[in-house]
């Protein structure tokens, strides 16, 4: 009996090494999670004391060592809104083409897909260089000479920064929208065709409304990605300090991320502005997290609704 049982047992070594591997991989997971936890705790504890209504609604004072960050928040929001208006229509329509129309193995489909995956891989700083050389120096200067302006579009400004960011976030928008469209069951499309609907009617009356939740999630993720990027802005329109809010697309703007960068690396008295920096970083982090959490919640809700059907 005993001998029999032993025969069915695994060699001792493999059991121990299995346990070790489980433990090791669990620890790795824990480390990754703790990266997030440590950053959250550190920024939270460093920044929450400075956080107040005044901080969020006042401009910087006393040579940036006091006051609030309202212009930076405003600039970030303005930038991201213009970016979203530029990228979402293109992203959604591209995804509709890819998911609903594109012949699967056609050259043009593969070209579009390759372009999008390449765009996703380009370092963000390169986008900044493209923004500078294409939008500002090429397009902007040309528009200026066309309308006879001295220097209006041919300089770093909010419009071009938003345009640059919108190209950067295009892959996010396309991928998220396509996922949402691909999740729509084929039977719904068939039912619509069987009623004599054209492809166009089917897409806009059945597929698109049903995918709306998923597309919204995608839009939020796009916004969050756009709000998090600083590198492409460095030379396309961001400014460290501006006395006025940027009310026109051709003005420069302040930005939360850039604000953190400059204060942390270039302020003459780092110690004095430390709490301000922490609070600013916390605000930016909270903004992106809030957007991502909303996206995650919408996704969970959609999954629950889909489960009910």
């Amino acid at each position: 009996m005993n001998a029999n049982r032993r025969r069915f047992r695994l060699p001792k070594g493999s059991e121990a090494s299995g346990l070790a591997l489980t433990l090791l991989s669990a620890i790795a997971t824990l480390i990754v999670l703790s990266m997030l936890a440590i950053i959250l705790v550190d920024l939270g504890s460093g920044g929450y004391r400075k956080l107040s209504w005044e901080f969020l609604t006042k401009p910087p004072e006393q040579g940036m060592t006091g006051g609030g960050i309202f212009p930076a928040i405003f600039g970030t929001m303005f930038l991201v809104i213009i970016m979203t208006l530029m990228v979402m229509p293109v992203g959604v329509l591209t995804a509709i083409y890819l998911n609903e129309y594109a012949p699967k193995h056609a050259l043009i489909t593969r070209l579009i897909r390759t372009s999008i995956s390449n765009l996703a891989g380009v370092p963000s700083i390169v986008y900044g260089m493209f923004g500078l050389s294409f939008f500002i120096l090429f397009l902007g200067r040309r528009i200026d000479s066309l309308i006879g302006a001295e220097l209006l579009f041919g300089q770093p400004c909010l419009l071009w920064a938003a345009a640059t960011l919108s190209i950067l976030t295009l892959p996010v928008a396309v991928t998220a929208t396509e996922e949402a469209l691909a999740a729509i069951p084929e039977e719904l499309r068939l039912a619509s065709y069987a009623l004599g609907a054209t492809k166009w009617q089917t897409i806009w009356r059945v597929v698109f409304p049903k995918a709306m939740g998923g597309i919204l999630t995608g839009a939020i993720l796009t916004v969050s990605r756009g709000a998090a990027e600083v590198a492409p802005l460095l030379f396309t329109g961001v400014a460290y300090y501006l006395p006025q809010l940027p009310l026109s697309p051709t003005s420069q703007f302040m930005h939360l991320g850039y604000h953190i960068y400059v204060m942390a690396t270039q302020s003459p008295d780092v110690e004095a502005t430390m709490p301000l920096q922490y609070a600013t970083a916390l605000v930016l982090l909270a903004l992106t997290f809030l957007l991502n959490l909303i996206a995650i919640l919408i996704r969970v809700r959609l999954r629950i609704i889909a489960g009910e059907v």
Partner: peptide, 18 residues
């Protein structure tokens, strides 16, 4: 499209629109 208006179809699984 014109034809399908005249020849309706109902599928195996109920598939009401959302």
């Amino acid at each position: 499209v014109e034809l399908r208006r005249r020849v309706g179809m109902v599928f195996q699984k109920p598939n009401p629109f959302p």
